[in-house]
Nucleic acid binder design. Structure first.
Lengths: 378, 378
DNA sequence: TGCACTTTCGCAACAGCGTTGCCAAAGTGG
DNA sequence: CCACTTTGGCAACGCTGTTGCGAAAGTGCA
C-alpha cells in the first residue's frame, strides 16, 4: 500500500512495468507492419540492449513474436517484431437504457466477437446483472478455458469494462442516480460483477469509454493526444482526453458539457437551469433547424477548446449521425471564426467519430487494455 | 535525446531523481515542523532504508538537515528532518504592461528580496530586457557568488522565471502578439534572457504562474490538487491546475476563460465575438452592478467546474480585490445552486487568492523551483 | 568465389537503484 | 538495572538498464 495521498515512490518493478508497457504500446501502434528493436530503442530512448531484454521477455510470455525482417541497408537486416493480438482479451460492455452490447476485443483492438440484447435498466439489479454476465460469458465462450461460471480460468482474459450513462464513481465502481433510474443510486456495480464473473471489472461513463476508444484507435489527427469527444444523442455529454489519458476529475464528474450555460437566462432546461447548450441544441434540432443546432454546439465547443487548448474535436451520437456533415461543418465554422479572431495558427479539426455503434463498447474494453500499453489511466 | 514523441523510457537515474524530488517535496510541505524518516517512508511507499539513503544524500548536498527529535513512543525517538531553504533560490519576474516586479525566493517559497520598477512594454526589446536583467541582478546581489554580469557563479541560483500577460509559447519561450504590443510577436524572450543572465530561464503566462504559485503555497483546500484561478483585472483569464500540475495545452493556449461565450448573440466584445464573459462581467462591474458581475462570473465558473470536475475556485485580480466578498459569495452561490440541481455531494469552495500583488512573481519563481519537488510540469 | 565492410543483436560484466536481514543506538518503563 | 520498543545504519542482495565485446547476417567490390 502506498502513501495516503500524493504521488508514490518509484522502484525497479515500476521501471520494468513502465518500460514493458511502453514497448507493448509501440508494438500495438505498429500494427501488422511490425517494428524493429532499434526503432523501439529510438522511440523509447532506451538502449538497444534494454529493448532486446524486454522484447525477449515479451516473446517468452507470448505477447510478441518475430515477423520477418526488413531490407538490409548494408548490414544485417533488422528483425521485425509484432504484437500477438490473441495473447490477451478484454470484454467491453455498453449498458444503455434499452440495450446491451458486449464485444470481445484482442490486444490490437480488433473485435472478435459481439452480442447485442434488449435490456430494461429499470428491471432491477438482479435482472440486469444476469443479463450482463450472460452476455460476457457468451462473448468469451470460444476462448481457451471458457465454459464455466467463473471466467478466472480464461488465461488470456484481462477483465471486463462496463460503460453506462449515469453519473458514477469510476474509482470505486459505484453508480450514482443513473438518469431516470433512481433505484441504482449507490449500487456497487463493479464489485458485484467482479464477484460473479471472477475477473477484474472497471466501470466508467459511456462518454469516457468512447473517448478512450478514440484515443487508442481514433482518427489519426487526435489519436493519443488531447481532444474532446462530444456526444449528441438523447442528451449532450463530453469525454475529455488530455495528453493521451481520459480526464475524469476527482469525482468522475468531468465532461459535464451539456449543461454548460451559453445563454444567460435563456430557455429552461430539464436540469432546472436556463440556457444550457443541451436544451438549446436539442431544441433547435427538434425544430429541424440543424444549422442553428450546429452553431450552438460550435459555440460551446469553442468555449471548451479555448479553455483547454486541445488538438481536435470529435462528434458522435444518434443526433449527429442523422446529419453528420451539417454538424461537423457547422461546428468547424464556429471554431475557425474564433481562431481567426485570436490569430491562432491552425484551425482545430472537427471530425465525425468512427465506429459509431460500437464506439462505447470498444472503449469499455480499452478500460482494461489501455493500462497494459501504458496509456494514462487515473 | 529521447524519442521524437510520446513518453520516454525509464531508467535508474529517473527513479533516483523522482524519489529524491518526492522526498524533497515532502520536506518542503513539512515546513519548519519537519518530518521524520519513517513518516517519509509511509508517505512515499518507500522502505525506511531507501528513505535513509535518500535523505543522507540530501544532507550531504546541503538540502536537508536534522532538526531535533520527536517525543519517544516507547523506543528510540524519531529524528526530525527539515528542508534547508537557503540551499536553493529562484528569481520570479512579473512583467506587466506598466510595471515590473522581481522577487527572490528560497526553496521553501519564502520571499527574501523584492524589487519593483516602472516599465513601458512598448519601449522596445532592448530597454525591457535591460530592465529585467537589472532587476534580476539587483535582487540576487546578496547571494554568495553574485556581483558579476553572469549569474552562473551564484551556486544556489536555479534560474529565473518570467510571467507576462500575452499569448506565448511556454515550451519554446517565445512570445506571440502580446496584447497591445504587436512588436513583441515572435520574440524569443527565454533564450535572450538566458544568454544575458547566464542561468536557465522559463517564461509563462501570468495566470499560469499565479496558478502554479497557488498550487505550491495556496489555500489549504486546493493546494496541489485540481483548481482554477480566475483573474479579473483589466481582462479576465484563468490558470488551470489539474492533479497538481499546470495545464497549458499543446500551444500554451489553455485558460482562455474570458472569451467564453455565455450569452449567444450578446453584447459585442473587444475580441470581435458576442456575449463573452469578460465583456459581460467587466461591463456590469463598470456600471457598478457588482452582484450581477459576480453572478455572470459564477455562471462561467460553473461551466468550467462542470467540465473539469475540479476541487475549488480561487479568485484574484484588481477588480476582485475591490469587493472580494461580493465576488466570492456571488460565485459561490451560483456554483452551489448548480451543485444542488445535480445532487452533488459537497459544494465547490470559492476563495480569494492570497498574496495578491506578489502572486504572479512568486509563481514565476516556482516555474523553476516546482520541478525540483516533483510537481507536475509539462 | 572470396574478402572487407556494415549493421544487428545477444552474452557477460557492471553500476546503481530500492529491498532485505541484521544489529547497534537510544529511548521508555518496571 | 534490565527487559522491551523503536529508530536507523551497515552489508549483502536482487533486479534494472548500461557498457564492452563478439557472433551473426547481410551488402558490395575485386
Amino acid at each position: 500500500m502506498t502513501g495516503d495521498k500524493g504521488v508514490a515512490g518509484a522502484n525497479l518493478g515500476l521501471v520494468r512495468s513502465h518500460n514493458t508497457a511502453l514497448v507493448l504500446g509501440l508494438l500495438r501502434d505498429a500494427g501488422t507492419e511490425g517494428i524493429s528493436r532499434l526503432e523501439l530503442a529510438e522511440r523509447t530512448g532506451l538502449t538497444p540492449q534494454a529493448v532486446s531484454k524486454i522484447t525477449a521477455r515479451l516473446r517468452a510470455e507470448g505477447f510478441a513474436a518475430e515477423a520477418g525482417r526488413r531490407a538490409s541497408t548494408g548490414g544485417k537486416p533488422r528483425t521485425v517484431l509484432r504484437l500477438v493480438p490473441e495473447a490477451g482479451h478484454a470484454v467491453g460492455v455498453h449498458l444503455d437504457r434499452d440495450e446491451l452490447r458486449a464485444v470481445l476485443v484482442e490486444l490490437d483492438g480488433a473485435v472478435v466477437a459481439e452480442r447485442r440484447a434488449e435490456l430494461d435498466l429499470g428491471a432491477g439489479a438482479e435482472a440486469v446483472l444476469g443479463a450482463v454476465c450472460a452476455a460476457v460469458r457468451d462473448v468469451v465462450r470460444d476462448l481457451p478455458g471458457a465454459g464455466g461460471e467463473d471466467l478466472a480460468g480464461v488465461g488470456s482474459l484481462v477483465g471486463a469494462g462496463v460503460a453506462l450513462p449515469g453519473p458514477l464513481d469510476h474509482a470505486r465502481g459505484v453508480l450514482h442516480r443513473v438518469t431516470g433510474f433512481p433505484e441504482w443510486d449507490g449500487f456497487p456495480l463493479r464489485d458485484a460483477l467482479a464477484r460473479r464473473l471472477g475477473v477484474p471489472v472497471v466501470v466508467d461513463k459511456d462518454t469516457n469509454a468512447a473517448a478512450l476508444g478514440l484515443a487508442v484507435g481514433g482518427a489519426q489527427e487526435v489519436a493519443g493526444r488531447s481532444f474532446a469527444y462530444l456526444h449528441l444523442g438523447t442528451g449532450l455529454g463530453a469525454g475529455l482526453v488530455i495528453d493521451g489519458g481520459v480526464h475524469r476529475g476527482a469525482r468522475t464528474g468531468a465532461g459535464e458539457f451539456g449543461h454548460q450555460v451559453i445563454q444567460l437566462d435563456g430557455p429552461p432546461c430539464e436540469c432546472g437551469n436556463r440556457g444550457c447548450v443541451e436544451a438549446l441544441c436539442l431544441g433547435a434540432a427538434a425544430r429541424g433547424e440543424l444549422a442553428e443546432a450546429a452553431r450552438v454546439l460550435g459555440v460551446a465547443a469553442g468555449n471548451l477548446v479555448g479553455l483547454l487548448d486541445i488538438d481536435g474535436v470529435l462528434l458522435g451520437g444518434r443526433t449527429v449521425a442523422g446529419a453528420p456533415d451539417v454538424y461537423a461543418r457547422g461546428v468547424a465554422e464556429v471554431l475557425a471564426a474564433r481562431a481567426r479572431r485570436e490569430g491562432a495558427g491552425e484551425d482545430v479539426p472537427v471530425r465525425i467519430a468512427p465506429r459509431a455503434e460500437r464506439l462505447v463498447s470498444e472503449g469499455a474494453a480499452q478500460l482494461l487494455l489501455a493500462p497494459l500499453f501504458g496509456r494514462g489511466d487515473a
